[in-house]
Amino acid sequence: MSTESQAVKKICLIVSKGSLDGVYPALIMANGARMEGIEASVFFTFFGLNALVNKTLDHLKVATVGNSALNMAMPMLGLPMTMPFPTWMGAIPGVSAFATHLMNKEMDKLDIPPVREFLELISDSGGKLFACKLAMDMFKLKREDLCDRVDDVLTVGQFYEESAGEGTHILFT
């Protein structure tokens, strides 16, 4: 194995979660890669498809139930970050929507675009967006249900073929 450091030439990100916080890290990493001149592909599978379906992608939510790190968001309410967020409160109707609203507001301040605009940005920058065929079949989705920026619907094998090449990294998020 070579000890020389080898540049990352291509990054392939797999998104399997469909919450706002499950999707954004991959979008940010893909866009960041393109800005550095690194090729980027994002493969959306399972619930990650939520970020590609036209009817749902504008309404992704922050998970407020079972998210034991939600104390991180407490400063957005003017409360200390060390204050725990009781998970039963997350189940109250409207709490997830409110947390999502707060998060979106903070992200907008940092010039992080909404999901649809982010997909367009990545696509315009030459990044590729793929949907998982198996997950599409499972959720009974058709190509026309997806955002028009999606490049293709791929099988797992096709995704690995797409990921071929020296200096490619595949990351599951």
Partner: peptide
Amino acid sequence: IRSMGKSGVVTTK
């Protein structure tokens, strides 16, 4: 990169 694309000076592409 977002502000550049919205500047009206140049598109992202």
